[in-house]
Design a protein around this nucleic acid. Structure first.
Lengths: 201, 201, 201, 201
DNA sequence: TATGAATGAGTCTTCATTCAT
DNA sequence: CATGAATGAAGACTCATTCAT
């Protein structure tokens, strides 16, 4: 009877979608279960049927939000072209992703804050960043192997790039005017890659 | 009668110090006024005598935490040495600052999340980053003027560096193992400066 | 499903009855929600489920108390007998009502004071007095039409009578000894009707 | 050293005047001592120096407000003219007084409500109405003695008239449109006096 | 499964009163 | 006499969670 499973899955998504909207609008702590009830169109009892608590919804949502688009990113590792080209492509994609997530970004930083206090949430977030780092590190390793890049620790370089764009997203979220994505999308990674390259620029 | 002013200032600090501890321990939203009362050793009424509301404490604290050490940073702009040297010094200082703020970092990310919903908090945070950016941009401009650096937009470069270290701090806060400050402190800025330099490395 | 409606209505009454008792005992401002909770036997949450705030309870109660017996009064307009007889009957009824409301009278004057500051309460109170006035004015008009009374403005006369008995109730509430209802019930209206009559007394 | 006494008296008045304004604006229960502090221009400590508590201020104010103009009224008892004329004069004066007290009326009804719960306040209010009644009763007795009025109980008649105008003031306070003083000032007493007169109208 | 009425511990905030200076 | 900082009990309201139907 997969129908039952389907309904169950649909309900869960319905709740998480509603929760996402509400959390973004009011912040996780300020959000009330009743808000989610209203937004989801379900009943209070239904929420508690599918999720044990508000915290359970938060935890489920972290995975839902952070992990969802990782697969597409992974594809880039195996794409054609030089490491430099592919890293630029990757950043281009990531920036596009950030823009797409604009509405959800407040949530991301609440997750980060939550991570300090919830083991489950923290582990999900860490998992996400590790995957992200691994993807980048692979490409960088390929660049080193091919003689394109100086021999640096791939993880350190990967984390530098991730940090830069995560930080950028954070600043952009605080004040959009601080970050001009058209400029910030390309120039920083250019400089980085320039600094990484074995060639004279 | 500066004594009165002094007492007033002392009380405010007393309250903010207590609030900081409590906010770090429990998170801003979960923190109760009573926690701050207990931690501060003052009475409920005293808190409300000096601060109109919990929110006012949060706002005041943002300034207190973010701005406090900015002056030392500003000094570096006028220090001796090449732009490269001074930027490295700056980062070194910033990293040391991050380490020092370790206990308060969770707060920083709650501030970020709060910034989305509180005009006052947002403006304080923006002010902080703009000052931070201006300091860096000045040094970079000096480097460009002296022929040390390629002619890039100083603001963009400054924001890239800030983003990188802010992002790093965020990742480190989530999972200390993700960031090895000994490595991450020096290497990323090395790469960046390499990419910025007009010389062959 | 009228059962649900019935329960809802029953709960509201339960709350209003409790609130009435508490307000009489302690005064509206001094009354605590917890008093009403205890008196009603319901929970705090239940009160707030049915009424948005303490003020909402006050407002609802004004209507409940003031309007409740108006219908019986209205019947007198269409009763048999001369206008004089019916007015006397009306007063007799009203006085009996006052006595019956003895316990609630303090409330009435708090309502009056409240009326100065709450639009909702004021409108309910005004509505009540207007209905009251209309009833009396109708009977007086009938008396004028039948040649029983001098041609006076019915509204003015009606308000005079209402004022007299409202004022009396107020004085009686302040100090029962000031008002001897056996005397004050009959004599004032006698004088009034005498002054109104076209006949020599 | 009457200066000291004078200052003391001045301070008391200063406080009562401020309290009156505040009570009218916010209601007795909602009024804060701090409001009175601000309005009076004195300090918190000063208020408590001159009055033991907020309640003491209320009590003192009742007398201050209700009794203040009674003397002028008393003069009318010994004026020239028929009882009818003097009663009309009295009402005219009273109506003018009401208008003058417009700003303070809300207070009056809070006093009434307070009277239910404070012995001191109640006694002051009773005293006021008794004096008021005595004045009227004297004039009415004079009218009876002179053969102008039917022989009725002067107290009952006096209370009827007082009730009427007190009630009118109350209704007017609730909703000014309910009471047209130009009409209500003269007509009701006319009817009353007509009903009281031994003459055919 | 689903509903939504009911619960009550928990929270912020207010404000009359006190008292050291 | 006067000040105003400090107190803390009290009170309105919220909201995650439960459970009878």
């Amino acid at each position: 009877m997969p129908v039952k499973k389907d309904i169950e899955e649909a309900r869960r998504r319905q709740i998480l979608d509603a929760a996402e909207k509400v959390f973004v609008k009011r912040g996780i702590d300020k959000a009330r279960m009743d808000d989610i009830v209203q937004e989801s169109g379900l009943s209070k009892g239904a929420l508690y049927w599918y999720f044990k608590s508000k915290d359970a919804i938060v935890s489920a949502l972290v995975g839902h939000v952070l992990i969802s688009e990782m697969r597409e990113a992974e594809a880039l590792v195996h794409a054609d072209g030089s490491a430099t080209e592919r890293l630029k492509l990757f950043i281009e994609y990531a920036v596009w992703e950030y823009k797409r997530f604009e509405k959800v970004l407040p949530l991301a930083y609440e997750f980060v804050a939550h991570a300090a206090r919830s083991k489950v949430v923290r582990e999900t977030v860490i998992l996400y960043f590790n995957r992200y780092k691994d993807i980048l590190a692979q490409v960088i390793q390929q660049g080193i192997d091919s003689g394109e890049f100086q021999p640096r620790d791939p993880d350190t370089v990967a984390m530098s790039i991730i940090s830069m764009y995560e930080g950028m997203a954070m600043l952009w979220f605080i004040e959009p005017n601080l970050v001009d994505w058209d400029r910030m999308g390309a120039e920083p990674i250019d400089i980085m890659l320039g600094g990484l390259s074995v060639e004279k620029r």
